[in-house]
Computed example of a mutant assay.
Amino acid sequence: MKKYKLTIPGLLPGLNEYIDAERSYKGKYKAASMKRQAQNVIGYMIRTQLRGVRFTRPVVIRYLWVEPSRRRDKDNIAFAKKFIQDALVETGVLRNDGWSEIEGFSDDFALDPKNPRVEVTIEEYEGGKQNGSKRKN
């Protein structure tokens, strides 16, 4: 069973920052730029830490969001999983981020004022079949 860990240092944009960017004067361009910048950082971390990793079976993703304080709400923080999953697809680690490729995910939260980060554990789903084969519901 394949299982890999990815660590992204620092904080990623939350939902509130993304909404503020969309509602700003430059609107969707500012939000798109924010997403692209976050995905560039995440993509770099993926390329350096998960070099050559490719999943062909469904995965389960576990997120550990390590924040410097309790200032941001958990749902606001976890919004950034969209950026992470899109970067995993963009770098070829996942074929896609749909129902057939991601069996599920979970979020956990912790505090570390000196070392905020996101720890992402990607694990092949035990009951998964090869992508492209029919899965029974």
Rank of each mutant, 00 (worst) to 15 (best):
K3C: 10
R70L: 14
S133L: 06
S33F: 10
L111A: 04
R135A: 05
G104T: 09
K114V: 06
M45T: 05
I102N: 05
A21G: 00
Y125D: 08
L11C: 11
K81N: 13
I42Y: 02
W99Y: 15
N76W: 07
G27Y: 07
Y44T: 15
W65D: 03
R117H: 08
R62G: 09
R95H: 10
V59Y: 00
D75T: 10
D108H: 09
V118R: 06
N96K: 12
Y4L: 07
L12F: 02
E67V: 06
I77S: 00
E67R: 15
F55S: 04
L88E: 08
V60S: 06
N40F: 12
E67S: 12
G128H: 05
E103R: 15
I84T: 02
S33D: 13
R71H: 13
W99S: 11
K2N: 09
N96H: 14
D112Q: 07
A38D: 12
E124V: 11
P113L: 05
D112S: 07
Y4V: 14
K74V: 12
K74G: 10
E22A: 15
T7R: 14
K3S: 12
I84G: 03
A80R: 00
P9S: 13
V53G: 07
R23N: 10
T7C: 06
K136H: 10
E126F: 14
E22W: 13
S106E: 04
R36M: 15
V59R: 01
P68D: 09
P113E: 04
I61R: 00
A32S: 13
K26F: 15
E103Q: 13
L15G: 07
R36C: 09
P13C: 01
E124F: 00
Q85L: 02
T121K: 05
Y44V: 12
V93F: 01
K81V: 08
W65H: 02
S100E: 14
I77D: 01
K74I: 09
R135T: 07
V93C: 00
I8V: 03
G52H: 03
P58G: 01
K129L: 04
V89W: 05
R57L: 00
F55T: 10
F55G: 09
K81W: 11
V118F: 06
P58R: 08
E119V: 12
K74H: 13
E126C: 02
S100R: 11
Y18P: 00
R57M: 04
Q85R: 13
Q37S: 15
Y125L: 00
R47G: 04
D86P: 08
I8Q: 07
I46S: 06
Y44H: 15
D20H: 08
V93N: 02
R36K: 15
R54D: 05
L6E: 07
N16H: 07
L12H: 02
I122M: 03
R54T: 14
